[in-house]
Design a binder for these strands. Structure first.
Lengths: 358, 358
DNA sequence: CGGGTGATAGAAAGCGCTTTCTCCACCGGG
DNA sequence: CCCGGTGGAGAAAGCGCTTTCTATCACCCG
């Protein structure tokens, strides 16, 4: 079967303890001894037994990555860069493995996976995506996160607001400036002359939905205090899938209230919005402007290319990896906010001259 | 700290062995005893220590999922459905965790991750994406896969050809009918009247590239034995990214050899192809038809919607999960080929009447 | 009516590693 | 010249679980 530590020790003529120390560092080992052990490891092709290490050390090389759904590019890109950054540059470093868990955004699934990861003695956990803001769940989540962090496993909240955990614990938050991005996007639409701006928001109760909507409204209100209220009937809550955007837009069109622009919760929803508009015979951006959020790869290939807000997913993934592995110290306050950037493309233009349609 | 098996045993007034048996099944436990144990587990909120189980049982609940890159929708969708299907319907079932590893298609990374997973005593491994067909690597991979399977961890090859391992081992292969799909796509182009068909192929040496190209050429040859050779100068090898399609198309245009259609290695590449053509002032499908492969979600939102070949990624993910967990018996021969389907959309049309351009 | 014969439960031996705790040599200072 | 220090190595005790191997009981059949 597999080579064990003891065999390596025997081969090198030292005790198992010494081999362990050479492999894990943090304890002085004389140069000659170290060399002999390393050679034995090499010759025997020794690969440590992960579970045994985890059992003895009470922590493993596993890093849990909770996402709403990896099939969604937003999470796929985040998880991908995170996974890549988990493998450090140095060659001998212990390689962390990413355990990705699709929660579908469901609180129960989130907690269930956290339990599973705790049982696996995961060496860290990254919670990504908007948080369900519901007192009961936030409380339960905070308790779980506190417990994990207290047991030494760093927790990184990525793309969601911080949790009220004791400051001394290894819990970091990496946020996106969703609010600012939504604000600038709305400003862009206003500057183009739009006033009747529809908004296809994400699921209610989700932090991301709240932030983006807040930024959007703030911009409207700053331009004209009456605008937020005026646009209220043009706001629809939906899911984060393409079909949600499609359905919401059909509903909007059915209602008949005129609008000249639609801002969507994210790019995927925006493609659904665009499809519904096109199907209704409306031209983009001639008749109606459309904007998304996230700047997923799809944005540049839609027709027309989608105006959106870039969210630095790759950067976030790398940062989260560095934080969860402890390679990067926690920032003071534990919170890092990554900037978002308005990406103006072809899907937004001034409203039609003849007045607002439909 | 965490509740242990022994504590549950004490609470239920039985021995640890009995608790273990209730939890794992496969050994008769009297109804009353079982109930008492289950109640104790419930009351104490017991969660098994994964590493300890894995150490004692020499196998874990971890399932390795090797992908080229999760950020790529192809793999994201595959990994997502696979991960979802790993969590069985029943509630008490042991939940398998998916460890996703980005190999970037690099043989060395593939082997390195396999070693890591072996060290973790993974309960199974799924290798996805085209295989690098290089004797040395195939040999090394076969050896590794054989060893893992022999130690009891099922291995599933998904979207790649089978490996020559002993038939008795738990190794299954789930393939896509890439060749057939490419064949039908080429037939479609030929039926539209195209004769000068460019092909932006994937990286050389990859099984997927080979299969798709083979199907494509087969259709050309069947239509006119001289066609494959005639189209040879219009075939370019590139990567699987959008930029590869873009660059390859620019190169094709630069060469000046006329073509009326371009078939791309996959949808992502096709979007790059389309972008380059559009940039060159060519209309799709008016001047040049474009076709992709995979039928990723992006296909329906490009302008025009992309004609492509649907590859049943979700189905494959679910099937792979069932096979790797042993929930579904290995098919005879160990190989399952999933059908692909031609999806005709707006990006393909008859070639321009005036003759082939550019 | 006694010893098979199942059906259950317990004892105990690890699984392969980490990590105290101990021990040993050898060093320099008093 | 002796002794406390100190760097380096080993012994051994687990970590929490699975899994033989054994030990009990009932029973049941000849």
């Amino acid at each position: 079967m597999a080579v064990t530590l003891a065999e390596v020790a025997a081969h090198a003529g030292v005790s198992p303890a010494t081999v362990s120390r050479v492999l894990n560092g943090g304890y002085p080992v004389a140069g000659g001894t170290r060399t002999r052990v390393e050679q034995a490891v090499e010759e025997l092709g020794y690969v440590a037994n992960g579970p045994a290490r985890a059992l003895a050390a009470a922590t493993s090389d596993l890093v849990g990555v909770l996402v709403h759904d990896v099939a969604d590019s937003f999470f796929g890109i985040l998880a991908g860069s995170l996974q890549g950054a988990l493998a450090p540059t140095g060659h001998g470093d212990p390689r962390r493995l990413a355990v990705v868990c699709n929660t579908e955004g469901a609180p129960a699934a989130e907690l269930a996976y956290l339990t599973l990861l705790e049982g696996q003695r995961a060496g860290g956990v990254v919670l990504t995506g908007g948080a369900v803001e519901e007192p009961g769940h936030t409380g339960a989540l905070t308790a779980r996160v506190t417990r994990m962090a207290a047991s030494g496993a760093p927790v990184v909240l990525c793309g969601r607001p911080p949790l009220p955990v004791p400051a001394a614990l290894p819990v970091a938050t990496v946020m996106f400036d969703d609010r600012g991005g939504a604000f600038r996007l709305a400003e862009h639409l206003l500057a183009l002359g739009h006033r009747r701006i529809a908004y296809v928001a994400g699921p209610p109760g989700l932090s991301t939905t709240r932030e983006r909507l807040a930024g959007h409204r703030e911009a409207l209100g700053l331009h004209d205090p009456a605008l937020p209220e005026a646009c209220e009937p043009l706001t629809v809550h939906a899911g984060f899938e393409r079909s949600a955007g499609y359905d919401a837009t059909r509903e909007l069109l059915r209602r008949g209230a005129p609008f000249t622009a639609v801002a969507a919760a994210n790019d995927t929803v925006a493609t659904g919005v665009a499809a519904a508009l096109r199907e209704a015979g409306l031209r983009i951006p001639g008749d109606v402007s459309v904007a998304g959020f996230d700047d997923l790869p799809v944005c540049v290939d839609t027709a027309p290319a989608l105006t959106t807000v870039r969210v630095p997913l790759r950067e976030a993934g790398v940062l989260a990896a560095q934080l969860v592995t402890g390679r990067k110290p926690l920032p003071p306050g534990g919170i890092t906010t990554l900037p978002t950037e308005l990406m103006v493309r072809g899907s937004t233009a001034p409203p039609p001259a003849g007045g607002s349609r439909p």
